[in-house]
């Protein structure tokens, strides 16, 4: 990676390398699960693949196909799908400050926001602060590009393979996703991030029981703000 030349292909390649391997593999596998569920729900191959590319958020996609399969009204499907993906507001909000400086043109920020998902978010939050600002957008582009490719291929493969996979195999593929992301979050560094992960683990299911619709945002707002205030108090005390 050349720190002096922002146009170097170094950070793009680094992003692609970091995404290839576990992130792309796990994403491919969980999208195989989605593709096969989408076929069972009555989607066509191309609507299934397009939903991955356009929505680019698995919880919203699953809400969409489940309600579509039940024959729910369009407005109900769209509302549920959008609500399930409301997490993108705090997610994009938290990571954009790392990209803003090197993306003075707003249109690139809006383009970057479309491709944000858990994998590139975790990679940027972890590695971004140690990069020079100009390297962050190309790193992100390389990383997200591999993720999008793996997810589109996985969705198509899952659609084609639907029915050929046993229930146990599909179930294991679906479990791959929470296992992988548990470890991504177990690997969080820095006191504030580690405390926020621990608080979220406890608060997530509790707030979900309180309100399945708003539980996730409440978890972020309550547990996240609480941890921020605690961390700021600790910083004040120890300098």
């Amino acid at each position: 990676m050349s720190p002096t030349n922002g146009k170097s292909s170094g950070p793009i390649a680094q992003g692609m390398i970091d995404a290839t391997g576990m992130p792309a593999l796990v994403l491919f596998a969980s999208m195989v699960g989605y593709g096969s569920m989408a076929r069972e729900a009555g989607l066509t191959l191309w609507t299934a693949v397009a939903s991955t590319g356009l929505t680019w958020g698995l919880p919203g996609q699953i809400a969409m196909i489940e309600l579509y399969a039940l024959g729910a009204p369009v407005i109900a499907i769209v509302a549920a799908s959008s609500a399930a993906n409301a997490r993108f507001l705090p997610m994009v909000l938290s990571v954009m400050p790392l990209l803003n400086e090197a993306l003075p043109k707003k249109r690139w920020r809006y383009a970057a926001a479309q491709f944000m998902s858990l994998n590139p978010w975790a990679a940027l939050m972890r590695r971004g602060p140690n990069m020079i600002p100009a390297d962050r957008p190309p790193y992100y582009a390389g990383f997200a590009g591999i993720c999008v490719s793996a997810a589109l291929l996985g969705t198509g493969a899952g659609f084609v393979l639907a029915g050929a996979l046993s229930r146990d195999v599909t179930l294991t593929l679906v479990f791959l996703n929470p296992v992988f992301f548990t470890l991504v979050f177990a690997d969080a560094r820095g006191r504030a991030a580690i405390l926020a992960v621990l608080a979220g683990i406890v608060a997530g299911p509790l707030f979900h029981l309180l309100s399945p619709d708003w539980g996730l945002l409440l978890t972020g707002a309550v547990a996240g703000t609480g941890v921020y205030l605690a961390d700021r108090a600790l910083r004040g005390r120890h300098g």
């Binding site: 705090p90 978010w121 504030a192 926020a196 621990l198 997530g204 996730l216």
Partner: peptide
């Protein structure tokens, strides 16, 4: 902090 807590909660 909000995003880490929310995503770990998810």
């Amino acid at each position: 902090c909000i995003a880490y807590a929310m995503l770990a909660g998810l």
